Simulated scan of single mutants.
Amino acid sequence: MRLPGESFCRTQLPRVSRTFALNIPLLPGPLDLAVTVAYLLCRIADTLEDEAPGALQGPLLDELGELVCLGPDWESRASSFARRAGLALRPEVPEAEAELVARTLTVLETLAALPSWVHPHIARCVRTMTGGMRQMQRLYGGDSQVMGLPDLQATFMYCYYVAGVVGEMLTGLFIAGSSSVAPRQERLAPRALAFGRALQLTNILKDVREDLDRGSCWLPRDRMSAHGLTPATLALPGSRARAVALMEELVAVARRELDAALEYTLALPADEPGLRLFCLYPLFFAVMTLNTLEGNPAVFDPTPVKMSREAVGMLMQLTQERVASDDALRALYAECSRAQAGVAEWR
């Protein structure tokens, strides 16, 4: 029997994320629906961060962080939130994201219908994320978008708030949902943050031009300054050589985080292939994405640099074939880390 709002959540997922629409269905139930709901709630927060003005963004993020706790009168408060949040979004917001914000109540109804062991993990994640976004905006943005962070530590802090905390949530859900994962908690917990940081840092690097065009930047100012750059000059044609050198430096940082993410994935039991593949897909997509970014001046052009659909399909097949073998996965990771992926249409 389907839960309230379940059909909307499952249908909306591929409209707002191609990547996670591929790996979330691999999870066993009810984890698949729990992670779908968690992703959609995080995406609502992300949409507010990207598409709402700074002066309105903070209070809306605070309110979303409270709503996920499902406190008194949460249904009517969620309806009011959705109306006000929708009015705050800029006109150019993608249609699917605007619809998701408008259906916040539906997503929360699905959360409320999930098993009780799911709730605290998702609530903590969304509250930490929205609070962290609010803090980063207050510290570095004021009433405008954030245009560069002071240093790599601040960039990592941002990555924690928007992705590292998701790694913590997933680990908690995996442990609560699978008896074979619980004994591995000591191996998983220390690596959960790196898994989230690696994926987020990869996204920041991949989307650097898109973020600049939107009026924001999450790269460290001290590393930009070391290459004679600022957010205002980063994408200028005359800065290409210096910008590529900066990108190579930050890609190396992301690769170190991905090394830890691989160890996190291999700490999951081989007899839980769905959990492993859930992590393997975005991990290997990130590896190949970094290959497309390294030494590539096109990352600073308006047209996004993306993996080809063929490369995505190949990685899915290769990881499926090797999912139960740590040695085979390590070898594939090493091979992909040395490869050069083609640039084509993927996001």
Rank of each mutant, 00 (worst) to 15 (best):
Q137P: 05
G142K: 12
V165P: 00
A112I: 03
A198K: 01
A113D: 06
G196N: 12
R191N: 00
L111R: 00
G141T: 11
R138Q: 15
L139C: 12
E186Q: 08
S178Q: 10
M129D: 02
S178H: 14
E109I: 01
V166G: 00
V162E: 11
P150S: 06
M129R: 05
A154T: 14
L199H: 09
F156G: 01
A154K: 14
L188R: 04
M169K: 06
A102P: 01
R103W: 02
S180I: 15
Q153L: 12
E186R: 15
T171H: 09
G167W: 10
M147Q: 15
Y161H: 08
E109L: 04
M133T: 06
V165N: 05
T171N: 07
P183H: 02
C159D: 13
L199N: 11
M169A: 10
L199M: 14
V126E: 01
Q153V: 14
A198I: 06
A96V: 10
T104G: 01
G177I: 14
L114E: 02
T104P: 00
M136K: 05
F174D: 10
E95K: 03
L188V: 07
P190N: 01
A154W: 12
D143T: 15
P120E: 03
R134V: 07
R191G: 00
T106P: 05
T104S: 06
Y160L: 02
M133R: 05
M147P: 14
A163R: 11
F195M: 15
T106Q: 02
V126G: 01
R187Q: 11
E97F: 05
V118I: 15
E95N: 05
S116Y: 09
L188Q: 11
G177M: 10
S179D: 13
D151E: 09
A192P: 02
M136T: 09
Q135I: 03
G132H: 07
L152Q: 11
A189V: 14
P120M: 01
C159A: 12
L105V: 02
L188A: 10
A198H: 03
V165L: 01
S116G: 05
C159L: 10
R187D: 10
A176I: 13
E186K: 13
G177N: 13
Q185A: 14
L100H: 04
Y158L: 09
V181T: 13
V162R: 06
V101G: 03
C125K: 02
S178T: 10
R134E: 15
G131V: 13
A176W: 09
G167H: 11
M169F: 11
A182G: 07
E186P: 00
L152A: 04
L100F: 02
R138T: 15
D151F: 06
A176N: 09
P120C: 05
Q137G: 08
L111N: 00
G131S: 13
L111H: 00
E186V: 12
Y160W: 15
G167Q: 05
A112F: 04
R191C: 06
R191W: 08
E109A: 07
G172T: 11
V146N: 13
G164I: 09
